[in-house]
Design a protein around this nucleic acid. Sequence first.
DNA 1: CACGAACCGTACCGTACGGTACGTATATGG
DNA 2: CCATATACGTACCGTACGGTACGGTTCGTG
Lengths: 216, 216
Amino acid sequence: MSVDTAEPSEFSPRQNAVLEQALQLLVDGGEKALTTSGVARAANCSKESLYKWFGDRDGLLSAMIAYQASKVRTFERNGERLTAASLHDHVVIFARDLLEVLAGDVSLALNRLAIGQSNRDGSKLGKLLLERGRRQIDRRAMALIDAGKRAGLLRFSDADEAYHTLYGLVVSDLHVRMLLGEPGLKDTARQAERAVTAFLRLYGTDKVLAEMPVLG
Amino acid sequence: MSVDTAEPSEFSPRQNAVLEQALQLLVDGGEKALTTSGVARAANCSKESLYKWFGDRDGLLSAMIAYQASKVRTFERNGERLTAASLHDHVVIFARDLLEVLAGDVSLALNRLAIGQSNRDGSKLGKLLLERGRRQIDRRAMALIDAGKRAGLLRFSDADEAYHTLYGLVVSDLHVRMLLGEPGLKDTARQAERAVTAFLRLYGTDKVLAEMPVLG
DNA sequence: CACGAACCGTACCGTACGGTACGTATATGG
DNA sequence: CCATATACGTACCGTACGGTACGGTTCGTG
């Protein structure tokens, strides 16, 4: 059974279309290109409507984050019988999805935007991005490694710690490098495989380790 | 023997003082506070001098990064006889230093600045920050794990891969979270210890593993 | 049809920034 | 003592942005 987890959209279809245009503008030209006049022009709406709907520029930015987060859906697989092989495969898929999400145009643009604003006092954009943007992927990963533990395939005392270890193994400094403008990996599949191998070597029980190659 | 690695400073003492003030301004108020007029006022110099010395605003930002990088010094320990215990200790110290550097006010402010500019075409700030800011710490880590390999304590085929694994284990998503405004860790020492334990479990030879606790 | 609400397009305002120009002071060197 | 270079402080300019106001248009509803 798969459970679809998504937020109900908080904005009208018209507003969603405007937010979509705003995101496109942000991806193409960066924050400097994201002016209220520019958004209004690109979305064929008036500035007055923008301010009526979103309050001010910060409200628009928050709405963009919320809208983008509402588009992301994950499927938590429950009740599936996990074996060492299927656990490995699921974690690899998770790792590749994670890398793909982090390398996405919109994700990078929104993270750059929030980071650029995070020095100002109480900008809340960073907090919003972390809560709304990562909750889905965090829940998916936690459910997966919890299932691995229940199936006797993984061994850890602190699930959060195990998850952060997996995250670090998968992403390393790649996210920051991409945020700084470096091109992404050429071979994400290999990176995902490497990370999962290391993760299972650290947290796998004998049932898992028995099926792994002896050397890294 | 310790080898001091540092860059010769490229600016006059007066210019360094101005850059120091600019960094302080950036740390305190973020990029928005870093105006040419503000820097001139804070540093008691004229805007004309700023433009004469650094060309334009981007030149000033680049100079700030170069200046900050020139202040960082690392000591590469060569020729030291490594044991399992001393390797462990050195890697832990490296991990704690890394976390401390990444959590520093100036580092976070400069990373935020470069990331905020990295969407604009050819802003080069991100590239500059990666090359100048990380070269020292990368070299120190590579020298350390290479020494570990030569001493028969570490086992890997690709040193770069091993280093990135260590980096990911130490930092995980902490850097991005801090860039987004989240407070840093309360206990960096524990995080460093955990990461190094995992790293040695993955890359340590039997000589190292024999001295480690059996369970995570 | 009539009325009102929502909305578009545009024009407008105040402000603040990047960058330039100018008059003055300080120091260095002959 | 003068000449030259360097740099300070201020004033200035053009531009562009966030935010507001207003007239005209569409559209749903009684």
